[in-house]
Design a protein around this nucleic acid. Structure first.
Lengths: 249, 249
DNA sequence: GCAAAATATTTACGATGTATCCGTACATTT
DNA sequence: AAATGTACGGATACATCGTAAATATTTTGC
């Protein structure tokens, strides 16, 4: 893709912008469009994302975006891509906080590092996370953004090359890894608080709305349920799954 | 559309239906609306779901639906509810195929039964599954459909009452259980096939679209990755997680 | 049979995704 | 420097969407 602009050579010189008068910010670009869309979604949620809105944010008509995303769905895929690009950065950053990693082989630690980076990036953009479900169901593997595929490749390589699994085993482990990380993130992001103002925990959770007769346990346990498992919980489950998938460390 | 007959006479006693000519089926009801919406989504996907469309399907104007769902979002929540109601039925059905359950305490088998029933119901309505992510992020616990909460209650009760966990422990186990089941279903539903017509597996997956240089492993492993883990995989991971969360059986 | 309540229709509005056509400013060639 | 091709963004238009408000119709209770 992106194969037509032959020159691309410098196009306005350096920055002497002055086109139409629309752009205090110079020309559009896929990066600029995606960054703006991501910002908007982070700020106001997925439902605020419309072509016109993103256009406005960029000082441009909605139709101008179609040069950089062939449809709104493509824009959504772009958001997913942006997320995975951020993940790549995060992983390249060697300083990235690496939290509680049980000892064991290097590939295991690396899987934890990936899982935790994914967790961090996802929590940083909660409104984008639903797209991880939606778009992955809509877009077949081979058509997913490159950044997504590179992430898959990275995990697969660890499993096949370093953990020494064969194709079958690596596939199973890969599925388990993805399922756990994704599911964990979703559950962590589920809305729990009903009324953030309220100081009393029970009211904050809106427990008074739940029929006490039928849901005694849930009512009692809800406050504890509302807490986050954090990276600890993520790591614990991952270890459990890896142990089962490949034998203990 | 269809607005000609003014007569509309009385619309039938008992069942001698004959109203307007809209309703071969009598009055609207929440159940009818949800069932129709679910059918439509199963048949044509989430994007085909619009108030007007559901209305048309029922021989009714779009606005008529608003008596049974206060907004489109509420309708979506209704679909989630419908899914969980089906799950309840499935679980009540003692004949429901209970597949490979490791031996161990009864509550463990029961958790497997719930997981597998959830899996079955979800795979039966793949287009609805994204809503499990979307709506759960949008609707706080206390406002979720009763059927959803009853499912939570059921799992929690098993963990606290039968497995003997305290609140903290049960919460952690509950989160692990939900994460795994949900994540597993999502990964299982991810689109893999690019071109269903194609007989050759590699082409069917559209592997020729993926850059070979950067993704050698993924290309090689994709066919195996495209296979389903099925209930076996679901059960295996669940056992691993439960072992870790409560000690081996 | 009739008033009251429940249910469905009409009409209307603003927002959305996107197809199509048009202008314009720059890059390259002459 | 003038001409020209082309990438880029704007303008306009349309079908569809969710839904508020007012209206019409049917059902129900007495």
């Amino acid at each position: 893709m992106a194969k037509r602009d032959k020159d691309a050579g410098q196009r306005g010189r350096a920055n002497g912008r002055r086109a139409g008068d629309r752009g205090h910010y110079g020309r559009l670009s896929r990066e600029r469009v995606l960054a703006t869309a991501l910002e908007l979604v982070d700020r106001e949620g997925l439902s605020a994302l419309s072509m016109r809105r993103v256009g406005a944010e960029l000082g441009v008509e909605a139709m101008a975006l179609y040069r950089y995303a062939r449809s709104k769905d493509a824009l959504l895929d772009g958001l997913v891509e942006a997320l995975y690009l951020e993940l790549e950065d995060d992983l390249a950053d060697t300083d990235a906080t690496r939290v509680p990693v049980a000892d064991g082989p290097a590939w295991r630690a690396e899987l934890h590092r990936i899982a935790q980076a994914t967790y961090r990036v996802a929590l940083a953009h909660p409104h984008v996370v639903p797209l991880l479900a939606t778009r992955m169901l809509a877009v077949p593997l081979a058509r997913r953004p490159l950044a997504v595929l590179k992430d898959h490749e990275r995990v697969l390589t660890l499993l096949e090359e370093q953990a020494g699994l064969d194709e079958k085993g690596a596939s199973a482990a890969f599925r388990a890894f993805s399922s756990w990380v994704l599911g964990y993130i979703f559950v962590e992001l589920r809305a729990m608080v009903d009324n953030p103002e309220e100081p009393d925990p029970a009211f904050r959770l809106g427990l008074h709305r739940m029929p006490a007769q039928e849901l005694p346990r849930l009512r009692r346990t809800a406050p504890s349920l509302a807490e986050h498992g954090g990276v600890r919980g993520l790591a614990a489950g991952l270890d459990a799954l890896l142990d089962a998938e490949l034998g203990r460390p």
